[in-house]
């Protein structure tokens, strides 16, 4: 029973972290119909920035320097997301869809290779954040506070985000652009600023996700963003790409299932953790071809 509870807690927490990344995927997809392959790497870069900023801001880690550096990480990641959109995606707005996707893969390459160049390919250790990294004992197992707090934080953020989308002018513009790109342009919506806002929100959430994720799993390598990114994307597809609640539910489901597969009592269960996620996805897609909450696409002749 104790084992069950701790596995569940870990699952929910990882799921929450995936959810924060998945929202970035799903929002961008909803508006641009673009799989933003670089999003996982933005998440990784945020992790690296956390390491470099905390170590350069102070010789010893006081709570203030850490807080300042985390805020800086947030700001810089947002800036990075904004820049990527402006440099790599905006010039291709009228290009074929595949070109934009390739541009995203190119950005992902660039970020990974730059990270390898800067770090020398060695895994870096994420600093311990005060309070979040402290452990408490729940049901007999020591657990970091971050594991307990993540789901609450995610729920608060998601509620705030849905409020933003449903009850503000920017949110209304976003919904309009997601519905029909060209018509909303004709209605006087500034497409570029809406898209930039989307990327800003997505990157900010990815930065938050990186803080929570790397506090739990402390090694940051240049490819550390690839798997969480892919999982988050799977979560987004799982819930139906373009739907924020779908992405969040998908992410929690995947996080929980993944942690239970990890502890299954048969030999080599850990090899199948990632594979299980994808198997689950394929099964869901076979029965619901556009994900759990996806809009049913109808072809017009």
């Amino acid at each position: 029973m104790e084992f069950f509870i701790s596995t569940l807690l870990f699952g929910i927490s990882v799921g929450g972290q995936y959810a924060l990344i998945a929202i970035g995927y799903t929002m961008v997809y909803g508006i641009l119909r673009l799989i933003n392959f670089a999003h996982g790497d933005v998440f990784m870069v945020a992790g690296l920035m956390g390491i470099y900023l905390t170590s350069s801001l102070g010789a010893y880690l006081s709570p203030t320097t850490i807080l300042v550096s985390l805020i800086l990480v947030l700001v810089l990641t947002v800036l990075l997301g904004f820049l990527i959109e402006r440099v790599a995606y905006k010039p291709l707005r009228t290009a074929p869809r595949m070109s934009v996707m390739i541009s995203a893969i190119g950005v992902s390459y660039l970020l990974q290779n730059t990270a390898t160049y800067v770090t020398g390919g060695q895994p870096m250790t994420y600093p311990a954040i005060p309070f979040l990294s402290d452990t408490i004992t729940v049901a007999g197992t020591p657990i970091k506070w971050v594991v307990i707090l993540t789901p609450f934080l995610v729920v608060i953020l998601v509620v705030a985000l849905t409020q933003l989308i449903n009850h503000t002018k920017v949110g209304m513009a976003m919904r309009a652009v997601a519905k029909d790109f060209e018509t909303s342009q004709l209605m006087g919506i500034k497409i570029n600023s809406v898209i930039s806002t989307t990327f800003v929100i997505g990157s900010a959430l990815a930065a938050l996700g990186s803080m929570l994720y790397f506090t739990t799993y402390q090694a940051v390598t240049p490819t550390a963003g690839a798997m969480p990114g892919l999982k988050a994307f799977v979560a987004a597809v799982f819930g139906g790409i373009g739907s924020i609640p779908g992405a969040v539910i998908g992410a929690f489901l995947i996080g929980i299932c993944e942690n239970f597969v990890k502890v299954l009592p048969f030999e080599g269960a850990t090899t199948f953790v990632d594979a299980f996620t994808f198997a689950l996805l394929i099964i869901v897609l076979v029965f619901k071809p556009t994900g759990l909450f996806g809009e049913k696409a109808t072809d017009k002749v």
């Binding site: 799977v234 790409i241 994900g291 696409a297």
Partner: peptide, 11 residues
């Protein structure tokens, strides 16, 4: 369709 096929084959 399209992106769903892509992610299913990737998986």
């Amino acid at each position: 369709k399209s992106d769903y096929l892509a992610i299913a084959t990737l998986g």
